[in-house]
Simulated assay, not measured.
Amino acid sequence: MGSHLEDQLLMMKKFPLLVPQNSTSTVYDGFLSVEKRYFHISLVVPKYPLLDGMNLHCSWELAYFLKDKEKEVQELADTCSMLSFYLTSLQNLLTSCMKTQWLPPSQLNCTNMESFQRLMSDIETVGMKHIEFLSHSMTWLKLRVIDDAQRCHILRLDVGANYPHENIQVQADLPQIALQNIKKNNSVVGIFRSFVHEISSLQNIWKLLDNVDEECWVLDPDKPTRKDMTRRIVIGQNLSLQLTFDSNDAMARPSMKLFGPELGVQPFRESLAANVEEWQDTCSLVENLKCVLSVATFPVRPDSLSQKKDQLVYEGECVICYSVQLEGELPSEVCKNVRCGSPFHASCLLEWLQCVPGNIQSFSRIHGTCPSCGSAISCPISP
């Protein structure tokens, strides 16, 4: 363990242009500096820090200087106890070879050395502890940040081959506004610092959303991510509430939209109108929702393996396709029969009504009968 750490420290100090490609440091890729020239090399060290079974892959320029030196190179691998020692010895061997062999400078492949050095300098500024992955081509990387709540956030940057002279493509699981703020920068360091700032500023809103996900039955998104600033939660039989949050202000009251049959929605609409001013910043979001909607509890997502085994359609599911989400669409049409109130995806209901004999099309709607109870029902006709 001691030699492992010692060798890693020596590698970082003496060979900063050689970057480990995995967490176990068994694969390295980058450049070896010799006599102010840079040679691309790749190393596979399966038993790191031991050099047993090590493979060296190098550019044609390096191979040119090491021609007829295969025996010496192998002896270095056999006698050196650590990778850093091996590379130091390889540098010395190359220095000797370059004094006796000549290669026109015009034939030396710089491989965008200026760009590579700038990228490595910026990576060093960011800190190696934040490097999740660095591609073999050095054209894209992933950075990692752990926030105050121990959430792991990954930032992918496609820097291209001419960094920093190309626009950097940024990917991160953040709200759109935060992502746009990050993209205003055009350097790895600037983007990373902006990424850290946005993560810090989003802590409160994420805490609030985690509270909703834990205590409510979320219909949409099915699997919320950190970029999602909306939640549609179940509040009653075939009734749901969509909440849209301001990512810049966790204390702001979210906008709310009710979904469901009018007879079921009306009491909640009246409660919202009467109690909306009762919203208190000192209370949790769920407690505030209970207050303004005048409910004691919210429905809990059933365990499909142990609850309602005899039930064909679960809460919030379309009674035609038996699913909540259909290609990103949630059930938006509801039977107005008080005793039914079945929800449907607009596309499912449209397809159903088009197959029902005697359907009537009037302007932009199609009319027919509910597949659950036979009552009159209609839905928009898709363009």
Rank of each mutant, 00 (worst) to 15 (best):
L9H: 11
K13F: 07
L18N: 09
N22W: 09
D29F: 14
G30S: 05
L32V: 05
S33Y: 02
S33D: 12
F39S: 06
H40L: 08
I41K: 01
V44W: 06
V45N: 05
P46S: 11
L50K: 11
L50W: 00
G53I: 06
S59R: 12
L62M: 15
F65R: 07
K67P: 02
D68L: 08
S84K: 01
Y86R: 02
Q91E: 01
L93W: 02
L93C: 05
P104E: 13
P104D: 13
N109G: 01
N109L: 11
C110M: 14
T111L: 15
T111F: 14
N112M: 04
N112E: 08
M113Q: 10
F116P: 01
L119C: 05
M120E: 08
S121F: 02
M128W: 12
L134R: 09
T139H: 03
L143Y: 04
I154Y: 12
L155V: 15
L157D: 07
G160W: 02
N162K: 13
Y163F: 14
I168C: 10
I168W: 14
P175H: 02
P175V: 05
L179M: 12
N181M: 03
K184Q: 15
S187E: 00
S187H: 01
S187A: 04
V189H: 07
G190E: 04
I191L: 15
F195A: 00
S200P: 02
S200C: 13
S201V: 09
S201G: 05
S201E: 13
S201A: 12
L202E: 02
L202P: 03
N204A: 12
N204D: 14
L209W: 07
V212C: 15
E214H: 10
E215L: 10
L219S: 06
P224H: 06
P224C: 11
K227S: 12
D228L: 02
T230L: 11
R231D: 15
Q237N: 15
S240K: 07
L241G: 14
S247N: 11
A250Q: 00
G260E: 02
E270F: 03
E270K: 10
S271V: 01
L272M: 13
L272G: 06
A274V: 10
E278P: 03
T282K: 10
S284C: 06
N288M: 13
S294G: 05
S294P: 00
A296F: 01
T297W: 00
F298V: 12
P302D: 13
P302Y: 12
S306I: 12
Q307E: 15
V313C: 06
E315Q: 13
S323D: 15
L326E: 04
G328L: 04
E329Y: 12
P331N: 04
H345E: 07
G358S: 10
Q361C: 14
I366T: 06
G368L: 14
P371G: 04
G374S: 04
I377C: 05
I381N: 00
S382Y: 05
S382H: 07
